[in-house]
Amino acid sequence: MSRFVKPALWTFGALAAGGLAFWLLLALDIPYRSTATPVTTPVPSTAPPPEQRAWVLDVRAGPDDRSAVLHVNLPPCAEAPHARVTEAGDRVEAEVLFRPRKGVRCTPGPADFPITTAAPIGNRPVIVNGGDAWPVAAGPKQCYPGLGCDPPADHCDPAWIAQRNGGADAEYSGTTRSCDQDWLIQDRQRHGGQAATRVVYRWASYGWASFAEAKGGGCAELLAADPKFPTALCQNLAPPS
């Protein structure tokens, strides 16, 4: 029988030693470190969106020889719009910068931003957005990108239409449906195949300015936007295509 007692005592001793070791670990309160990868919650970025340049429609002379006015197309929901001016001996560089508001779509509209220079502007051209050059010394005479200082008298001239289809609208193709000196209708389609939208424009001092859109044919939607719209331009129009 002794041959059975010895293994039993050995087993009991081993269990007792293991229990003692486990008790000592609990008494020492050694912190447990998990090897699993901790789950982290992504923190949304609080960085403001990058600044964008506003599309400059024209540059006019200011009240004195050290000032000018940038006439721009600017979204009304733009945040912190401001003009920035850099001078050189042979030119003045200017731009209007803003931050778009996240998650908001709003139709751009005209806005004026006066600028001042340290030295008289004189015959120096005003370079806007690093590209187009505008002569300001001519005084109140307006000059236009792509049209110069002597634009066509006919507001339906292709040059005026091309100005409308440039800048912020360059991602769209436009088909003119009707036009007179004060009103313009175009069917516009984003490059890529989306359905066309009918856009209606009024003539403004700087060119064509959009004021309404329509999905159907005829005049109902256009007259609802402006009862003065001439029905002769829309009464026979089919829906946009």
Rank of each mutant, 00 (worst) to 15 (best):
Phe229Arg: 05
Pro151Cys: 03
Ser2Leu: 14
Tyr144Phe: 14
Ala224Asp: 11
His71Pro: 01
Ala195Met: 09
Leu237His: 07
Leu223Arg: 05
Cys143Arg: 01
Trp23Gly: 12
Asp187Pro: 02
Ala133Gln: 09
Tyr201Cys: 00
Trp208His: 09
Pro63Arg: 08
Leu233Pro: 06
Cys219Pro: 00
Ala47Glu: 08
Leu28His: 04
Gly13Thr: 13
Ala168Pro: 03
Pro63Lys: 00
Gly109Met: 03
Asp64Gly: 07
Cys77Ala: 15
Thr11Ala: 15
Ile185Arg: 01
Arg124Cys: 00
Cys77Ser: 15
Ala133Trp: 03
Gln163Arg: 13
Gly103Ser: 10
Asn73Val: 09
Pro38His: 05
Ala111Ser: 13
Ala111Met: 02
Leu20Phe: 15
Arg177Ala: 08
Gly131Thr: 08
Leu223Pro: 04
Gly216Asn: 12
Leu26Arg: 14
Gly193Pro: 09
Asn123Leu: 13
Pro145Met: 04
Gly217Leu: 00
Ser67Arg: 02
Asp58Tyr: 01
Thr11Met: 14
Ser241Ile: 04
Ala36Pro: 08
Pro151Asn: 03
Pro49Gln: 04
Glu87Asp: 08
Ile127Thr: 06
Trp23Thr: 15
Thr117Pro: 06
Pro75Val: 02
Ser45Tyr: 01
Cys219Lys: 06
Asn165Thr: 13
Pro120Trp: 08
Arg177Asn: 02
Ser205Ala: 14
Leu25Glu: 09
Pro110Gly: 03
Pro42Leu: 02
Leu147Ala: 02
Leu233Ala: 08
Ala17Pro: 03
Phe98His: 06
Asp169Ala: 12
Val72Asp: 02
Asp112Arg: 06
Val128Lys: 05
Val199Trp: 00
Pro158Lys: 09
Cys77Arg: 08
Thr41Ala: 11
Glu213Pro: 00
Gly216Phe: 03
Asn129Ala: 10
Pro44Gln: 05
Ser67Leu: 09
Trp160Ile: 01
Phe211Glu: 10
Gln52Arg: 13
Lys141Tyr: 05
Pro140His: 02
Pro31Ile: 05
Ser178Ala: 15
Ser34Leu: 11
Cys156Phe: 10
Glu51Gly: 06
Thr41Ile: 14
Ala54Asn: 00
Ala153Leu: 13
Arg190Met: 10
Ile127Leu: 07
Pro81Asp: 03
Tyr206Ala: 12
Glu51Cys: 04
Cys234Asn: 03
Asp90Cys: 10
Gln181Val: 07
Arg105Phe: 14
Ser2Asn: 14
Arg105His: 15
Gly89Asp: 12
Lys228Ser: 15
Val5Asn: 12
Pro38Asp: 01
Asp157Leu: 11
Phe22Gly: 11
Pro114Tyr: 07
Cys149Thr: 00
Val199Gln: 00
Leu26Tyr: 04
Ala214Leu: 05
Asn236Asp: 13
Val69Thr: 04
Ala14Asn: 07
Asn129Arg: 04
Ser173Lys: 10
Gln189His: 02
Thr11Ile: 15
Glu171Pro: 08
Tyr32Arg: 13
Arg53Ala: 07
Pro42Ile: 01
Cys77Glu: 14
